[in-house]
Design a protein around this nucleic acid. Sequence first.
DNA 1: AATGAATGAGTGTTCATTCAT
DNA 2: TATGAATGAACACTCATTCAT
Lengths: 195, 195, 195, 195
Amino acid sequence: MPKIDIKPKRFAEILDAAAEIFAEKGYHGASTTDIADKLGIKQAGLYYYFKSKDSALAEVCRLGVQGYVERLVTISQSELSADQKIRAAIREHLQPFHHIRNHVRVFQSERRYLAGENRSEVNKLARKYERELRRLFEAGVAAGEFRQNLDCKLTTLALLGMCNSVTIWYDGKSEKQILKIADNYADIIIGGVVK
Amino acid sequence: MPKIDIKPKRFAEILDAAAEIFAEKGYHGASTTDIADKLGIKQAGLYYYFKSKDSALAEVCRLGVQGYVERLVTISQSELSADQKIRAAIREHLQPFHHIRNHVRVFQSERRYLAGENRSEVNKLARKYERELRRLFEAGVAAGEFRQNLDCKLTTLALLGMCNSVTIWYDGKSEKQILKIADNYADIIIGGVVK
Amino acid sequence: MPKIDIKPKRFAEILDAAAEIFAEKGYHGASTTDIADKLGIKQAGLYYYFKSKDSALAEVCRLGVQGYVERLVTISQSELSADQKIRAAIREHLQPFHHIRNHVRVFQSERRYLAGENRSEVNKLARKYERELRRLFEAGVAAGEFRQNLDCKLTTLALLGMCNSVTIWYDGKSEKQILKIADNYADIIIGGVVK
Amino acid sequence: MPKIDIKPKRFAEILDAAAEIFAEKGYHGASTTDIADKLGIKQAGLYYYFKSKDSALAEVCRLGVQGYVERLVTISQSELSADQKIRAAIREHLQPFHHIRNHVRVFQSERRYLAGENRSEVNKLARKYERELRRLFEAGVAAGEFRQNLDCKLTTLALLGMCNSVTIWYDGKSEKQILKIADNYADIIIGGVVK
DNA sequence: AATGAATGAGTGTTCATTCAT
DNA sequence: TATGAATGAACACTCATTCAT
């Protein structure tokens, strides 16, 4: 959390710069100087906004998961059919890749370098999200919509792996592209590739 | 490539240690001392086997992709049906996760930190693999086995993302488990989750 | 060139320390720790002033040649007789040995360890100085003051070798001594040792 | 001194390689690997011939001064006139620059890096040589051949500086060139540049 | 007459961090 | 809201040296 008297807008700029650098070079490959350079300030100046490099990473990660669980819960509680819920979940999962791509990438790949409490806190959220997602599949099986022999845990992991890997190659240029990807991926998960 | 006169067995041990450390801590988060410690030698001793940390990474990555393209080509040229080819491809893709898990993880996550020529060389292999995989889907569509509206490029990426993410959570304990995952993932890709 | 915002006085202190250590131990025999110790700071602190050991060497060398060419040109353009010009040149050559003895020694003996551009830049200056000096002899020959059979190139090299070697044994204690040496050397070059 | 059972010829080859490398890169800038590479052997193999890098330097330096004092004494005791003695001394001083150029260069520039006893031993020789040379001038003055006001110590140093600097630029290609230089330098020292 | 394999000490350099201003 | 100046710890890498073979 930023100091109370920091302008939120400037703070967000700092965060964005950090996210971009962390995403590009990895947490350990990035130096605070890289971040400062991107902002046009001297490296020591960063410490007005963050108490440590690790806390900057924590902040970026937090922004990267923000809202994920909530959006999934909303879908879960909706009146949609099981497959429509999956479709919606995929869309909600991918859409932030457009607006906060770097934060999400950092959350995915660099959160493991978080120290102590920050790591466990962020991981708890990740596990909660996974659990919530699995329930969507379990409900589909229970409702007879999905195959009875479906391994819901593996399916959840498959879905997550599939979706998260988009950050590796998505260029961030068009939101429409993201929605198209979401639909395609939903098609695959729901109905597979065969006729 | 290792120096000509080094015992291959010892060299492989060094490689394994490097792979394990890189996988665990990331390339930039890992120190050469970490690797040496794991081997029970002094850090300077590593430089008898590698000329730089970067070249060690290159070697690990090379081992991590080794054989992938070849196995895929073999499948592609076999007499199997399109869906059986996908199933076989997934199995061949995942099976090394058991034996050379760390090398594969390093290849996936750390190859981007390779410098210059090493990076491009390894990336070329990765792209070739992707292309070969896509042709499997394209052939399935052409043969009328897969949906006509299938976006083969996206499907390829989905498959890769799904499969590669296994390294994040697979604990390396049982090869049977890997085969089970492969089958489940093949079921999903081929037929989806619905009845 | 030092970073723009560094206090010139402090920077000169750093330079002097580097010059002294380089002169005493040679570039490769000197460690940055030696320099830092002399300044009473920690070794890492040097890198606030220099971006590399090599650039420190470059700076010291630059200071070691500074003004040499200019002073020689002034003499060359003066109204003095040829032998008086040589006498003046020797004096101007040796006098800095008193004030910036270490810089000159480093320029003489260590500039060959400079890398790339720094080396060629500094060498260019050295060659220009040599050329200018040779013209003094050539003019003396043309004017009929010096022997017609004088090999001006060799004579220039002889003069330089003679003068530069003073840095090897001059103890830096008295400026008067330097002027005495200059006069003696001028006597030798101009008239030799015989009656 | 080499081990008793080493072939003198091979030992000389090793010495030459060391001299060349030390001359080119300086003692501290040269690595034992550089020397081994030049010889086409592995670096550890050098230690069959030398017990340390320092002792290799000592051996090279010793070869670089070998005979100097003796030759000067011979000249001193000859029946030549004072100026002819100086001329002969310069010739004898420069001639080895052709045959053992690297050893001489190393003696001149790198002997200061010798440790302990080796250094003092070699320096003693150098001082002896200087003393012997000065006596040549003193004798010339005493005999009325040279100027009465000649500062013999400075003149000796001038002569040495002049002559030794030849190693900096002499390319080692023609022995005739060396003799020409010697004659020119003798002319300068003896009679100066004026008519 | 060397080499393979290693070590221990040191080297230049980077980096996160601090703090007075 | 930053910067100048510095530090301490770590880091990749080099190097002279050793010793069994």
